[in-house]
């Protein structure tokens, strides 16, 4: 049996979780809601994070436009995702929700604009 303490980051409450692994799989205690249970198990299997950053825009009102991954990507892929974001040079106009890359760093997740420019 293996146990791990962690803080749930799915909402600002920041519950202190204890995740226990035994032959039946994972069990989570200390969570206030179901999302905490999901988080605890996911964190043991493969930690996932949403990446937020900005891209340089050609011809926009502002030099940069903010972006996010539409879903969480594996934590181990964050470096690769940031690398691809840094190389992007979309042109204005850009609207909130525009897809700037369909499959960022082969994660299967889209990169979308979070501001207008």
């Amino acid at each position: 049996m293996k146990t791990q303490e962690m803080i749930c980051i799915r909402c600002p409450m920041g519950c202190q979780l204890t995740v226990t692994q035994d032959e039946n799989g994972y069990s989570v205690t200390g969570n206030t809601c179901r999302r905490g249970e999901e988080y605890g198990i996911q964190e043991m299997r493969c930690p996932m994070r949403v990446v937020t950053s900005s891209v340089k825009v050609t011809g926009g009102q502002r030099p940069v436009c903010s972006v996010k991954t539409a879903q969480a990507v594996p934590k181990s892929e964050i470096g690769a995702v940031l690398g691809e974001i840094a190389a992007l040079r979309p042109s204005a106009p850009i609207h909130i929700g525009d897809v700037l890359a369909g499959d960022i760093a082969h994660t299967g997740v889209a990169l979308i604009a979070t501001a207008n420019d």
């Binding site: 909402c11 903010s66 996010k68 207008n116």
Partner: peptide, 24 residues
């Protein structure tokens, strides 16, 4: 507008937004 990370709106809109999306 300058808080481009996510985590806004979970309570108010029931989803996680970035600052500019929340403002918009």
């Amino acid at each position: 507008q300058q808080c481009i990370h996510n985590g806004f709106g979970l309570h108010y809109f029931g989803e996680e937004l970035t600052g500019p999306e929340y403002a918009n």
